[in-house]
Nucleic acid binder design. Structure first.
Length: 193
DNA sequence: TACTGGATTCACT
DNA sequence: GTGAATCCAGTAA
C-alpha cells in the first residue's frame, strides 16, 4: 500500500538543499521517498540517523568520515565487514550527520535486483542496508556524489506520523548509545535486527 | 608495519 | 541463537 501510493505520486528529484537540515529530522521525512538508480527503484521504508554520537563514523575526524562533516545532500558509501557496502545521505545542520538507508520496498527492476542479489524472494531483496546496496548495484564509486543525479531520491508524499515506528536510543552497543532509527510500521521490508 | 574491530549477512544448529 | 566470512579503516607502536 505504501509502495503503490508513493510510486503513483513520485515527484521531482530532491535537491541538495533539501538535506541541509538535521539528520534526526530528515530520517523520518525520507520514509516513503523514492530511491532510484538506473532501472531499479524502491520506496524507502527504514532509515537511521547518525550525528555526533560515538556510534557514528563522524564521531572521529578521519579521511573516511570527511563527507559526513563537510557535505550535505551527497552519498556517503562505505565498505564494512570485508564484503558489504552501506549507503548514507549526508546532512548538514550543525555541519555533521548522515542518514543511513536501511531498507527499501522494491518498485521497479526486481529482476535485476534478484540477479544481483542471487535470491528469488522479493521480500529478501532489500530488507537490509547492505542488501539494498547490492540490489541497486551501489558501490564506492557512488561515495561523495550528489544525491541529485543518476543515483537519486525523488519526492513523494510524507508518511503519516502514526505509520512511523521509532526505535532509537533504547539500547547500548559497545558502550555507546544507539542512533535514531525510523521505519514504516506495516512494511514487510523493514529489517529485523 | 602490524594488529584489531566493524552502521552485515547468511548458513547452520 | 550462534558463529564464520572477509578486508578495509583506524590505531598503536
Amino acid at each position: 500500500m505504501i509502495r503503490a501510493r508513493s510510486a503513483s505520486k513520485q515527484g521531482q528529484q530532491l535537491l541538495q538543499s533539501w538535506f541541509a537540515s538535521d539528520a534526526v529530522l530528515l530520517a523520518p521525512k525520507l520514509l516513503g521517498k523514492i530511491v532510484r538508480r538506473g532501472s531499479c527503484s524502491g520506496v524507502i521504508v527504514e532509515t537511521e540517523a547518525y550525528t555526533t554520537d560515538p556510534a557514528s563514523h563522524a564521531y572521529r575526524i578521519t579521511p573516511r568520515s570527511v563527507p559526513m562533516r563537510d557535505t550535505y545532500g551527497c552519498w556517503y558509501v562505505y565498505f564494512t565487514y570485508g564484503m558489504h557496502y552501506c549507503a548514507n545521505v549526508t546532512t548538514n545542520k550543525c555541519g555533521i550527520g548522515a542518514v543511513l538507508i536501511r531498507a527499501v520496498e522494491p518498485i521497479k527492476g526486481m529482476a535485476l535486483m534478484k540477479r544481483r542479489r542471487g535470491v528469488a524472494e522479493t521480500h529478501n531483496l532489500t530488507n537490509g542496508p547492505a542488501k539494498f546496496c547490492q540490489a541497486f548495484g551501489v558501490g564506492k564509486k557512488e561515495n561523495t556524489r550528489p544525491v541529485a543525479g543518476t543515483f537519486a531520491i525523488y519526492d513523494a508524499p510524507d508518511v503519516p506520523s502514526e505509520a512511523i515506528g521509532v526505535s532509537g536510543r533504547i539500547g547500548i552497543r559497545n558502550g555507546t548509545e544507539l542512533p535514531w532509527r525510523f521505519y514504516i510500521k506495516d512494511s514487510p521490508f523493514v529489517s529485523k535486527k
